[in-house]
Design a protein around this nucleic acid. Structure first.
Lengths: 245, 245
DNA sequence: GGGGAGAGATGCCGC
DNA sequence: GCGGCATTTCTCCCC
């Protein structure tokens, strides 16, 4: 098998809409939203049936170059090397790989209609607080969850025991400075739009950075330790329960 | 080749530190920072020589399940299926894949010591403004760039024609609400720490969202159209020039 | 290791 | 399409 044979193999597989994987030695140039150059080394190419392109080095978990689905991919032989070109519009971008050797190659028609189910997200967390408001604090009465208002996307909003409007921003991991400014934005916009001077802001997360805690307190907001729910089975059960009512 | 043979192949390749790629039919469970379940379908597994694990569906550009480098990966046959287990500490997480069929398999010792060069980043942008401050505005004199101060990571800081302290926050694409709050944080911290009442805040980006523009103006900050520099060659030339001085 | 911020971020949802 | 925001974000850099 020489590069000419691989040119034919890849072109045919692209035509058939197969998913293509190969290992090779190559140089890569990218031009588009930014520009990049990567000198010769061994890489893995993954061209999917939706015409997304991923190029991986033999280390690291993120692709070193890539193109989103819908790319136009073509191959040709030029000066003894296999040239792979991928291009996309919107944004206009190009990948040019110069391949000097193919280590291995495979392609196949792959079928997968499944959609992943995930538990433990921020949405799960805000749903949990909506359903069990006592986890936030006694007397909290939620009124809306994951609400897309023109002030922003507010995770949970409600009133506390004393009837004060309360905004809750959830973070699934460690709350940082950006989380505090996000909460602050919601609270300030609500104060203006509703014309009330006191709106409580609560940041709910498993933990918070030291600086974020300080900024939070400087601005008169509060932190509550809340951990996102996991366990897909438990959630399924809870959902089943909710569906009954 | 049956699943027993692939068990041996994979175990040997893992021992030799090879990069492994295979296509298969499988179910996947993940437990760790979150939890996920993915029912049976065709997927591509990529196990790199640094023991990072990537699992891709035949569509989409992000892995559907993954584990960062340093994972412990093992395979065994159980009830007629090939079980692949990957686990990491810090954070504690597990991937369990139940493989019913291998469509193709390859592994190889791959070598790649190259590091990508990228042009058109935010750092390139702040360097450009530092070197050619007139691109921001006439009379601007930069004093520091990409400075990690205790007030935050400030892209470019300097004084304007009238000697006013000026903070510049760069965004390589479209500036959004978060960019405005980030700038606001720097300006406010500087005012407190330096004890001065007027600090100019400038957001430099190719464009800005409508809401961000409004919030920016409400807070008395300014927007300047600045586009990040591209063209690796030009940058190399500029860098060569700088190195001379 | 924690904290802060960029990324060619990507992907999702809503308008 | 843009906008706002979560992500098992990942990655880098600095303290």
């Amino acid at each position: 098998m020489d590069l000419h044979d691989y040119e034919t193999l890849i072109a045919d597989a692209l035509r058939r809409g197969e998913t293509i994987v190969f290992g090779c030695r190559c140089r890569i140039r990218y031009s588009g939203r930014a520009e990049s150059e990567l000198l010769e080394g061994d890489r893995i190419f993954l061209i999917k049936n939706d015409k997304s392109v991923l190029i991986h080095q033999p280390h690291g978990s993120t692709p070193i170059n890539y193109m989103k689905s819908g790319a136009s991919v073509s191959v040709k032989i030029d000066a003894g090397t296999l040239q792979l070109h991928a291009t996309n519009l919107a944004p206009k971008e190009n990948i040019d790989a110069s391949i000097t050797r193919i280590h291995f190659y495979n392609s196949a028609l792959l079928q997968d209609g499944e959609v992943i189910r995930v538990a433990g997200t921020e949405a799960d967390m805000s749903n949990m607080l909506y359903d069990k408001p006592e986890l936030l604090e006694e007397g909290f009465r939620p009124a809306s969850r994951e609400e897309q208002t023109k002030y922003g996307f507010i995770d949970v909003m409600g009133t506390d025991k004393q009837g004060r409007l309360t905004v809750v921003e959830c973070k699934r991991y460690c709350a940082d400075l950006a989380a505090v400014t996000q909460l602050r934005r919601y609270v300030e916009k609500l104060m203006v739009s509703k014309g009330i001077s006191q709106v409580r802001g609560i940041l709910a997360a498993p933990k918070i950075t030291e600086n974020a805690k300080k900024m939070l307190e400087d601005w008169g907001y509060e932190f509550k330790v809340v951990t996102p729910p996991k366990y897909l089975e438990e959630q399924s059960k809870m959902q089943a329960k909710l569906d009954v009512f």
